[in-house]
Design a protein around this nucleic acid. Structure first.
Lengths: 116, 116
DNA sequence: GGAAATCGTTTCGCTTCCGTTTCATTTTGT
DNA sequence: ACAAAATGAAACGGAAGCGAAACGATTTCC
């Protein structure tokens, strides 16, 4: 059965997660960075810079910069593709998986407290 | 009945909305700005700079700057409190209400398409 | 083999956001 | 009346992101 949200529930959910993230999250990712992170962790690999740029509808430098930032945070890692050395493959990390998992828990907790 | 999400559903929902927003939204609000906007539109007024700062757990200049930005976008408006002229009251706008409404629709649409 | 295409990165100038501090205005308390 | 407190905005220096263009490294295509 599909997840059906009423408008106030949908907006409340987003508000609560946003408030919680602003309040407690040290990483302070932008929406673009979050979109990249979740795509790397939810979509099937491999993930290339070009592929991520296409998925988000942004230019490649946007991806490169986001990977710089999130790489320094150890949320993702970069590796040369040995089959085609022009490519860079973005891979998950233990820290990133933990971060994404906790973020999902926050969403679930907020959803449970939504008004009926 | 409460809204119950499984981890993959919660994360997929956030990913889809993030991707959609990055792709289509011209405003490009930060997470803090979004938290402020939704609080103004969902919580009961009046909304002061100090109150919003406390709600988000950030300093007042953060709120002031966010209101500058979102005021220029006409998503919120500022008015002196005539009862206590030290206060500034943040109010909703027609444009802002429309923006929030559309954002809610995006969340609902993404939720409907979640895997079971 | 060599030109062309592809891929990710770097550079450039610009804008925006950040935290901290300082300031002007207004209200409160005595 | 007047000092103290409270409120929001402005100033400051620093960090990070943006789009566009240019750049090396690698592969593809004749």
């Amino acid at each position: 059965m599909a997840i059906q949200l009423r408008p106030v529930q949908a907006l409340r959910l987003w508000q609560q997660v946003a408030l919680h993230t602003v309040h407690n999250d040290a990483h302070d990712l932008t929406l673009r960075q979050m979109a990249i992170l979740l795509t790397v962790y939810l979509d099937a690999p491999p993930h290339t810079v070009r592929g991520l740029a296409a998925r988000l509808g942004v230019t490649k430098p946007v991806i490169t910069r986001a990977l710089d930032t999130m790489g320094a945070m150890k949320l993702v890692s970069r590796h040369r593709d040995e089959n085609d050395r022009r490519n860079v493959l973005v891979r998950r990390t233990v820290e990133g998986a933990l971060y994404v998992e906790r973020f999902g828990d926050d969403i679930i907790a907020s959803a449970l407290q939504l008004p009926i």
